Simulated scan of single mutants.
Amino acid sequence: MSRLFRDVDRAMHASQGSVVCIGAFDGLHLGHQALVRRAVEDARARDLRAVAVTFDPLPRQFFARGAGPARLGSTRARVEGLFRLGIDEVALLRFDARLSGLDPETFVSRVLVGALGARAVWVGPDFRFGRARAGDFELLRREGARLGFDACTIEPVGVEAGRVSSTRIREALAAGDFQQAASLLGRPYVIEGRVVRGRQLGRTLGYPTANLRLPGAAAPLSGIFATRVHGLGPEPLDAVSSLGTRPTVGGIEPLLETHIFDFDADIYSRRIGIEFVEKLRDELKFDGLPALVAQMDRDADQARRVLAPLNTRRTA
């Protein structure tokens, strides 16, 4: 049975031990997946539970005081993805001053061994941990020899002559290169969330939208996109999406607004996923609503043309 907990001090210590993997796992890209799968395979071979240790907020966000790199996915998507990869328990630790202040040796003894009963700990290349990032794989290996667990790592995962990394994915998304992003993620880039009520201005303009708030303070991309919507039926639905602050109507907070073609249903509070297929243009500020609507008409026509070949291949 899958299990999620936030506080390792309250974790149920398993006397038989566990196999642990540690990481931010933002986006769960191919490198993360390789690490998690090795840990799961090791756990099955040892007849132990596989535990993923990750953090919320992400350490980079915590130290940047909210101005860190854009998130590639929501916390919920990260946890659900870890469970799909075979993880039995996710330790979603609150990354705060207390946790960040632990020296590496204390983190190992108190969290990995004391709370989780680690018999093996898997980490990625260039892994650093503990106060001031003083811990590395060599320290983990020494502590493992002292405390009775194996320290294990994997080689970097490469795609197209480059190492898979969250930074590389953010760069691809910012450039609108969704094919490259998908090759690094191992799947199309999708933003998931629950549909929230907006100002309903789009409905008055002839373009009702499903609105999603973004995971984190910033998005790795912005603009107008041809998209597909997952979660409302057996097949994805064609759509056109805007991700930005809506400067023409005085918006401030970034919002993902999606107009689903030939669709009229009440989907407030439904969880959906927006798959990004192609960037159409950057977000612009228009001189009034008529100019905005005229551009929305052009965007919708262009999105339909972009998405039409995908529907042809699906029905062939």
Rank of each mutant, 00 (worst) to 15 (best):
A161P: 00
G162C: 05
R163T: 12
S166K: 06
T167L: 12
I169V: 13
R170T: 11
A172I: 06
L173Q: 04
A174P: 04
A175D: 10
G176W: 02
F178L: 09
F178Q: 04
Q179W: 10
Q180W: 08
A181C: 07
A182V: 05
A182F: 10
L184S: 04
L185R: 03
G186A: 10
V190W: 03
I191N: 01
E192N: 10
G193A: 06
G193Q: 02
G193H: 02
R194I: 12
V196Y: 11
R197M: 10
R197Y: 12
G198Y: 08
R199G: 07
R199L: 14
R199H: 15
Q200W: 11
Q200A: 15
L201A: 15
G202D: 12
R203A: 14
R203D: 13
T204W: 08
T204M: 10
T204K: 14
L205N: 01
L205M: 15
G206T: 10
Y207M: 02
P208K: 03
T209S: 05
A210L: 05
N211W: 04
R213S: 07
L214V: 12
L214W: 05
G216W: 02
A218F: 13
P220Y: 07
P220W: 05
S222W: 04
G223Q: 02
G223P: 00
I224Q: 00
A226D: 05
T227P: 04
T227A: 12
T227S: 14
R228A: 05
V229Q: 04
P236S: 01
P236G: 03
P236Y: 01
L237C: 02
D238L: 00
A239K: 00
V240T: 01
S241W: 02
S241A: 11
S242E: 10
G244N: 09
T245F: 09
T245R: 14
R246E: 14
T248H: 09
V249G: 05
G250S: 06
G251N: 06
I252A: 13
I252G: 07
E253P: 03
P254I: 02
P254G: 02
L255D: 00
L255Y: 00
L256T: 00
T258C: 08
T258K: 00
T258R: 02
T258F: 02
T258E: 08
I260F: 06
F261M: 06
F261C: 05
F263N: 04
F263P: 01
D264I: 06
I267R: 09
Y268K: 11
Y268I: 13
R270D: 15
R270T: 12
I272D: 08
I272R: 09
G273W: 13
G273P: 15
I274K: 11
V277H: 07
V277R: 10
E278I: 05
L280F: 04
L280P: 03
E283T: 03
K285S: 05
K285C: 03
F286G: 00
F286M: 01
F286I: 00
D287E: 09
G288A: 02
G288V: 01
L289N: 01
L289W: 01
L289H: 03
L289K: 01
A291S: 12
L292Q: 11
L292T: 08
V293L: 14
A294T: 14
A294S: 15
A294E: 15
A294C: 14
Q295Y: 11
M296R: 08
D297E: 14
R298Q: 15
R298W: 11
R298G: 11
